[in-house]
Simulated assay, not measured.
Amino acid sequence: MSCSLAAPLQGPVSLSLPFTSQSAGEVRRALVSWLRHHGSPESVIDDARLVATELVANAIRHADPLRNATLLVRWRQEGGDLVLTVADGGGATAPTLRVVTNESESGRGLAIVEALAVRWHVERSNQVHAVHVHLRMDGSGQPSLDDAL
Rank of each mutant, 00 (worst) to 15 (best):
D88R: 12
E114M: 12
A115I: 09
V118C: 14
E103Q: 03
R98Q: 12
I112D: 12
V44S: 07
R61D: 03
L66I: 09
A57F: 10
R61A: 01
R98W: 12
S106C: 12
V99I: 14
R74A: 10
A115K: 09
A111G: 06
V99F: 11
R76P: 09
H62K: 01
E78R: 04
A59I: 08
R49T: 06
I45G: 02
G91R: 09
E78H: 04
N58V: 14
G91H: 13
S125D: 08
P95E: 04
L66K: 03
A111R: 04
L50Y: 07
E78L: 08
H62G: 00
L71N: 00
D88M: 09
L72Q: 06
A48D: 03
H62W: 10
S106Y: 13
G109H: 00
R119V: 05
A48F: 04
V73M: 01
V86Q: 05
D47P: 06
N58F: 06
V83N: 11
R98N: 09
S43M: 09
R61W: 05
T70Y: 11
I45N: 02
R119I: 04
N102W: 12
P65L: 04
N126W: 14
A57S: 12
T53M: 12
A52F: 00
L97F: 09
V73R: 00
L66N: 04
L97Q: 10
G79V: 00
L84V: 09
A87G: 10
A117L: 12
E123Y: 06
A52M: 01
R74Q: 14
A92E: 10
L55V: 11
L66H: 07
V44L: 14
P95F: 13
G79K: 04
R61F: 02
L82V: 01
S106T: 14
Q127G: 14
V122M: 13
A48S: 02
A115F: 07
R124C: 15
T53F: 03
V51G: 07
A52H: 00
A69G: 08
L55T: 12
G90H: 08
A63K: 06
L55Y: 02
N126R: 15
T53K: 07
L110S: 07
W75R: 04
A48V: 04
D64R: 14
V83Q: 02
N58H: 08
S43P: 02
L110I: 10
